[in-house]
Design a binder for these strands. Structure first.
Lengths: 204, 204, 204, 204
DNA sequence: CATGAATGAGGGTTCATTCAT
DNA sequence: AATGAATGAACCCTCATTCAT
């Protein structure tokens, strides 16, 4: 996964492993868990099928692992963007910006998390649930703090956080539908920030 | 699908067809496109597997058809709820209420639309896109009218509509996760209405 | 299995099922459990591979079933041959004769039981053990009765029975090695009878 | 194989080769030819998989070689035990004793010869045949000499020898089924000796 | 000598689809 | 109309074997 490309671990031995994981993220993101075959993945990585099973125990384990890792990465990316900011407007702006940047730069990350492999893989449904829960909680923490500071009115911050999370996803998915979204990124980020802040009752 | 109970396909001769379609919605919604087998569907409908292929050309066609029909039904349900209302707050309240009611009473409808077989079924990606577009447009029309009436400030109503659509979905999915969501419905509807109205800049 | 050919159940519907079971006995007997592939079996039965899984849950289940059925059949065949006889010499003669006849007429039955699928299939090792135990017990019962009648001297009848069972198998396997064993059958049966009777101390 | 501990293959350089052969006997004996994987063997010998193919051309060749060597060892062990004895009773007693001792001390030797990969390995069927033939011939030679000395009555010594060989195997396998067979060894040896001598018509 | 990453044929099994009854 | 036995392509995965280091 190129978003991990900053890691120093670049041992030759793992080049195939890395290639397969990158390929797997793409293939899973594009087709979803079921439609993606192991042959698709090894084909994209240009290795033999046996190589897959040398590095990974099976398709499901890899998918779950990739899903978790991708989810963590996305959550941390947003979290870090938000971390240094003091006020809710700054936090929202930074978080939204980070999310959009990630989606535009690594669309597979977002697609993997949303296209999903829901159904039939029991361990997956709960992983997805867990991811949504964590994403929601991230927003919720910010809102709770803002409520405590009287920056925004009292409200059911869980609902608000869910609303924000879902709204962001939808706008971002819309953004990814156009071939070259870069020109629209800033606009989307600004609009999204405004929408979020208004939704939670932040005075202009 | 109980929401189709008044259609013409109710002729006795088509009872098996209807049974299979109802079963298919449930099975697809529960397992997703790939994990749902034709045998699951005919098993749930209590007919033979050959019967499936007498009424439907194949699994994919049925799924796409069901997806379209379900999407139309959801859109019309919301549209009708909104239709008689004059002001944006009334419209939002009615639309949100209708959406939530539908989700709680017919969770399979929502699940079918969201669980998806994206990627898996090539022709489905665009169907899904089309559904989201229509759902967004539905909100967008209301917002555009409100902007024209100076009820809410000028804004990119497409972005706003996407935000609303995504936010609604997320809250509704959260609602469906609990076993007996009925007690929480009113609360969710109220919160959702508030969030939507605030997000688009409607003064309290 | 042709040794069940006397059954009246000859429904057309089960012709493929029967063909596969017959083929399976042959293939398993010839190659053993592991080397026999499902494709071998369906090839021998001239049906498609999917047909196998329409009738049987999986390869292992079929093998265990066939093994049990074959073992029961062999045990009952010997048991019945022995049943009407009063004296030990008559019983031994009849039992040995029956066993040899079966082996010559249905070599696959014997081969299936002896070539086996030992190793790796846990449920199989005990099945084989159980079969040997039952075969031994069959002889042991005869010997115990003979000891009680003072027809033969007191002895560890379990050891004697094991000795007999193993000795019979070896002679029979030797018999099956020649292409046309029929001419040697009578001789083998006589020798075997003498050996068994002598071994247990039956006076000439 | 501990029974090979005094051979020339003991040179330091071949320690890995030896380790693999010892491991292979155990693994093959325990799982049978097919279920035993090359990885099982190298794992048990604690060497890399490539090392296997440096010393042995392939799995099948090793198995056949091990089978032959094991068969020879067993035959020689019995042969040597019998060699110094003059009378049939002494010979039988010594041979049976040697066989049982070997089975109890080196169960893998016996299991390897009996668990088999019959059918699975084409070249093995004849190896097994050859082993049984030699084992039978060993007994047959003793019987022929005894017949010539009028120690036992004239008989088809081939049949008698087969009977003995099979009978021994069965009792020995029965012995190996119990976890700690040592206490039963003497009893089994005595019974077996008696059974063999009686079977061939040796007067008490 | 020794290693273990890499290969791919092949095995068990599933499931959409067909067709004779 | 309706059935369900039959089909076979395709899936996931294993494992004997090779070869660059």
């Amino acid at each position: 996964m190129s978003y991990r490309s900053s890691e120093k671990t670049r041992r030759k031995k793992d080049s195939k492993r890395t290639a397969m994981m990158q390929a797997a993220v793409q293939v899973f993101a594009e087709k979803g868990y079921h439609a993606a075959t192991v042959r698709d993945i090894v084909g994209a990585a240009d290795v033999a099928i046996g190589t897959f099973y040398f590095y990974f125990p099976d398709k499901e384990t890899l998918f779950v692992y990739l899903y978790e890792e991708t989810a963590d990465f996305l959550l941390q990316t947003i979290q870090q963007a938000v971390a240094g900011k003091q006020t809710l407007p700054q936090q929202v702006k930074a978080g939204v910006q980070a999310y959009i940047n990630l989606a535009v730069y690594e669309p597979a990350v977002v697609n993997l998390l949303l296209v999903g492999g829901i159904g039939a893989v029991p361990s997956l449904a709960e992983k997805r649930l867990e991811f949504r829960r964590q994403l929601t909680r991230l927003w919720q923490r910010l809102l709770d703090a803002a409520v405590a500071d009287d920056a925004i009115p009292a409200q059911d911050t869980r609902h608000s956080a869910e609303f924000i999370a879902g709204g962001c996803d939808e706008i971002i998915l819309g953004l990814l539908e156009v071939p070259n979204p870069e020109p629209f990124v800033q606009n989307a980020a600004d609009d999204l920030t405004t929408l979020v802040l208004r939704a939670v009752g932040m005075p202009d």
